[in-house]
Amino acid sequence: MKESIPLTWRKIPDRYRLLGSLCKNCNSHYFPARHVCPKCRRKGKIESYQFSGRGRVFSFTEIHAPPAGFEEQIPYVMAIVELAEGARCTGEIVDVLKKDMQIGDEVEMVFRKIQSNDPEGLIHYGFKFKKVKK
């Protein structure tokens, strides 16, 4: 789906740097950022939290039927990554195919182009992940 300029602009801290939230009351990490801790609700003490970007693959798929904007990328690997701090997020794993992937693989965040609305439109950047070489 095409995203507007303001929508993209307000997501920059989260999408460019993996900036999320930490609840100081229960020590739970959240990504993307939240204003209410779903565990503590009104007792929660939410602060901004910079994730390390390291994590492990919790599950993955290889996309063959792409959404608009990703046609030239297929096939590509999407994964749920469990960040080292405990929160999980969804992102692409770059430079690999399914055959290179296993649940539990160690990954780290990289900064990449996500998609662009059209050839002359806004270019959206953000986080993806790559496998950590052993």
Partner: peptide, 16 residues
């Protein structure tokens, strides 16, 4: 904002 926009598809979620 945090699944589809980043390149996941609805079948992709069920695939995971």
């Amino acid at each position: 904002e945090w699944e589809l926009f980043l390149g996941a598809t609805f079948p992709g979620l069920y695939a995971m």
